[in-house]
């Protein structure tokens, strides 16, 4: 007991003495709002405009470093309708902000979405009747040596859930993410580095929506976004990947 207390005390003293270099929070904004080629996202701290980001459809934005604090992220469409959300960011934080849904002019939050936010807070997530949403993702992860983590987000509004299967090109190991509904994000799963073949199917059918080959490195968090190719039609989906290193 006494020894344990001494060990803890020493650890705390060591940790206290170590001057930690805090990293500024970083955020990437991605635009998956269907039927919109590009949008401008405004980032405000209080009344002060911090950044205006131009975001093209289907691409992950470049990293923006912010001072810690509370920010309002907003998007105004060509008719002047406003979608805005307030999120806090803090030192050492890394986040992705994802704009999703249909841009059909209905910006008001649905009642079920509002009720779920009241009772579940940060864990509340609904399709919001496919209306536009600004969703935040946290990029913190831990992973074993020689492995990476992979997760997927379904950004195809109005379509059945999808099943995703990955097969390692060499070991033939298989990894599955089943029943991924819009606009949910799967849990991050560990996988070995190497080449992986990805197959996306519509839930309950044999129809393959997408195949893709992905090279996985080590100590990375990879987020795969599934979204419709608006020029090719809803079931022509595209995969865009975001990688965050350790």
């Amino acid at each position: 007991m006494k020894y344990f207390a001494v060990i803890i005390a020493v650890l705390v003293i060591i940790a206290g003495c170590k001057e930690k270099q805090k990293q500024l929070p970083v955020i990437k904004v991605s635009q998956f709002l269907v039927f919109n080629d590009s949008v401008n996202i405004r980032i405000m701290k209080g009344e002060e405009l911090t950044e205006t980001l131009y975001c093209a459809y289907g691409s992950v934005g470049t990293p923006v470093y912010l001072e810690p604090g509370l920010y309002t992220f907003s998007y105004r469409d060509k008719n002047g309708q406003l979608l805005s959300k307030r999120y806090g960011v803090a030192n050492d934080g890394s986040y992705n902000l994802v704009l999703s849904g249909f841009s059909d002019g209905r910006y008001q939050e649905t009642t079920s979405n509002r009720l779920l936010h009241i009772v579940e807070g940060a864990e509340a997530l609904t399709a919001n009747n496919f209306r536009p949403q600004l969703l935040i993702e946290n990029n913190f992860f831990t992973v074993a040596d020689k492995k990476s983590k992979l997760r997927f987000r379904n950004l195809i509004p109005g379509v059945y859930p999808v099943d995703i299967t990955l097969v390692n090109a060499v070991s033939k190991d298989t990894l599955r993410y089943n029943h991924l509904k819009y606009p949910h994000l799967t849990a991050s799963k560990s996988l070995e580095s190497g080449n992986w073949h990805i197959e996306v199917k519509l839930r309950g059918t044999k129809k393959i929506l997408k195949t893709h080959s992905l090279e996985i490195g080590t100590k990375e968090l990879i987020t795969g976004y599934l979204f419709p190719d608006i020029k090719g039609g809803f079931l022509h989906i595209t995969l865009e990947f975001d990688k965050v290193g350790k």
Binding site: L70, G88, A90, N91, G93, A122, I136
Partner: peptide, 13 residues
């Protein structure tokens, strides 16, 4: 003490 951490990556409640 680092107040922004209390709402880091979430909406204030």
């Amino acid at each position: 003490w680092d107040q922004p951490q209390l709402i880091a990556g979430m909406e204030p409640r």
